[in-house]
Simulated assay, not measured.
Amino acid sequence: MTTRVNADRDRCVGAGMCALTAPNLFDQDKDGRVVLLANGALNDAELDAAREAVALCPSRALSLRDGTDDASS
């Protein structure tokens, strides 16, 4: 099973905690909204960084989900 990160751009308030915490996984667009840089399964280091970013997100726009590498998930 793999873990992936989800970002809800509609919920994002542009605080930037994700990009500061995990710059290899997240960035912000010109409007300050979250941009997900990692669309695939996360390795162990990325998963740790993603968990921290999820915990620090003030708007709860980030989440982790378990799934398969299957394109239908």
Rank of each mutant, 00 (worst) to 15 (best):
T3R: 10
R4D: 00
R4G: 03
R4Q: 08
R4F: 15
V5A: 09
V5E: 04
V5L: 09
N6F: 14
A7N: 04
D8K: 11
D10F: 01
R11F: 08
A15C: 04
G16R: 11
M17P: 01
C18G: 01
C18M: 01
C18Q: 00
L20A: 15
T21N: 07
T21M: 06
A22C: 15
P23H: 01
P23N: 01
N24C: 09
L25A: 10
D27H: 03
Q28E: 14
Q28F: 08
Q28R: 14
D29H: 05
K30E: 09
K30G: 00
D31R: 06
G32T: 04
V34C: 11
V34D: 09
V35Q: 04
V35M: 09
A38P: 11
A38V: 14
A38S: 15
N39I: 07
N39E: 15
N39M: 12
L42F: 06
L42T: 05
N43M: 09
N43W: 07
D44L: 02
E46W: 11
E46V: 11
L47A: 10
D48Q: 10
A49K: 07
A50K: 03
A50D: 03
E52A: 15
E52W: 10
E52H: 13
V54I: 13
V54S: 11
V54R: 09
V54E: 14
A55C: 04
A55S: 13
A55E: 07
L56W: 10
C57I: 02
C57V: 01
P58S: 03
S59I: 14
A61L: 02
A61G: 10
R65L: 07
T68L: 08
D69C: 14
D69Y: 13
D70I: 02
S72K: 03
S72V: 04
S72M: 00
S73V: 13
S73K: 06
